[in-house]
């Protein structure tokens, strides 16, 4: 991602069950599991905004977009 297009990665921590699907399948390893096993954005520049983390989250916990 270009520097000026910041990623807006939102996690609903209450819905997330720490299954690890989003972090395991992120094609760019832009998100990573924190110490509770829940995802956080660690490399915004690497994110290609494929939105697969949001689409494959079984728990409706992720919303990803561009900063408005």
């Amino acid at each position: 991602m270009k520097q000026e297009e910041k990623v807006d990665f939102r996690l609903n921590r209450e819905y997330c069950k720490a299954c690890g699907i989003c972090t395991a399948l992120c094609p760019k390893k832009a998100i990573s599991a924190d110490d509770e096993g829940k995802p956080s954005m660690i490399n915004e520049e690497a994110c290609i905004m494929c939105r697969l983390c949001e689409l494959r989250c079984p728990d409706f916990a992720i919303r990803i977009g561009r900063m408005q």
């Binding site: 209450e14 069950k17 299954c19 690890g20 699907i21 989250c57 079984p58 728990d59 409706f60």
Partner: peptide, 12 residues
Amino acid sequence: PHMWCRGCGNGI
């Protein structure tokens, strides 16, 4: 949150 187990594919 829904009733399905952690990692269950139903949510997808």
